[in-house]
């Protein structure tokens, strides 16, 4: 086949794909922290391994098999429920971090490979980026800036492994848990800040005020009387004792109309407002109580484990 034409682009593409897998395979490890098959992880920085949190079932010290075949011990530094990422520190891992792909290598339709190491050897599956989704709302209610949906086969050891470009280089971390078992990946731009925060803090800061809310529609009379720009609001249906909202004087039955001047129509609007609060910052909430508007300042606290309730 190759002999009758000098330029076999198929063979060229094929060897480029396998070279890309081989290159990143040198930065892909097997993590022994669940029953049955090990999970895959990526050497993200020197001595730092990133994987999918749901595949690493144990905390503390876990055994990691390196591409060289050597076993080392890695320590689970922290997890993020929202992005389903886990960061491990393995001081014995001296190999340089996996090279990154060009940003143009992950457009919709780009050829990509999912690489894994569910054991001793490297495995790969091949496909395309099928969608690039901004503002993905995960099952736990957290917003992910960007998720890549993939058209490729999900196999044992897929989650936690690297998604790589056909031209080589890491695009992100594979995960089948975001899209009900479908293939998806978190791009490096989303992974990096999570890794930074987990390495410095051990967990992801989640501003938390301790209210449960439900959306309601305000009557037109109420909207006119208070000169509101919208007719939606959130009614406070539960209040965590001693948490930020309670401490700020929010009462059960209060109607939250706006936060920092931004209208609240859905619970996700409140989550978005919270995620924008910097450390030590506060929110100005506009509250309708007994038909009378109040301004309340709430200082969110940091909650260790992420969750949907704001």
């Amino acid at each position: 086949m190759a002999s009758d034409n000098d330029t076999n682009t198929l063979a060229e593409l094929s060897s480029q794909l396998s070279a890309a897998v081989e290159q990143i395979g040198e930065h892909t490890v097997a993590i022994h922290a669940r029953r049955r098959i090990p999970s895959s992880g990526v050497i993200w920085r020197e001595g730092v391994i990133v994987s999918a949190s749901h595949t690493v079932r144990r905390d503390g010290d876990v055994r990691v098999k390196l591409p060289s075949g050597d076993d080392v011990v890695a320590h689970v530094v922290g997890r993020d429920a929202a992005t389903d990422l886990v960061v491990l520190r393995a001081p014995e891992v001296k190999s340089p971090p996996a090279p990154r792909a060009d940003v143009n290598a992950a457009r919709v339709g780009s050829f990509v490979l999912a690489v894994g190491r569910p054991g001793r050897t490297v495995t790969a599956s091949f496909g395309i980026v099928s969608a690039d989704v901004d503002g993905w709302r995960s099952g736990s209610g957290a917003r992910l800036d960007r998720v890549l949906r993939l058209d490729l086969a999900v196999y044992d050891g897929f989650s936690g492994g690297p998604l790589i470009a056909a031209s080589g280089g890491v695009i992100g971390i594979d995960n089948s848990a975001f899209a009900r078992g479908g293939a998806a990946a978190l791009p490096a731009s989303v992974v990096d800040p999570v890794v930074d925060e987990l390495l410095t803090r051990g967990h992801i800061r989640r501003p938390f005020i301790g209210v449960g809310v439900h959306p309601v529609a305000l009557g037109s009379a109420v909207v006119e009387r208070n000169d509101l720009s919208h007719d939606g609001a959130l009614v406070v249906v539960s209040l965590a004792e001693g948490e930020a909202a309670d401490a700020a004087g929010i009462l059960l039955g209060d109607l939250l109309i706006a936060v920092d001047g931004r209208p609240l129509a859905r619970p996700s609007d409140l989550l978005d407002a919270l995620s924008g609060v910097s450390e030590g910052g506060s929110l100005r909430a506009t509250v309708l109580r007994g038909g009378v508007p109040h301004e309340v300042t709430i200082e969110p606290r940091d909650r260790d484990r992420g969750g949907a309730a704001a």
């Binding site: 682009t9 198929l10 060229e12 593409l13 090279p99 060009d102 470009a165 031209s167 280089g169």
Partner: peptide
Amino acid sequence: MTTVPAVPPYGI
């Protein structure tokens, strides 16, 4: 951090 350039399109 090294970066790998994107490929030209192929006529496969």
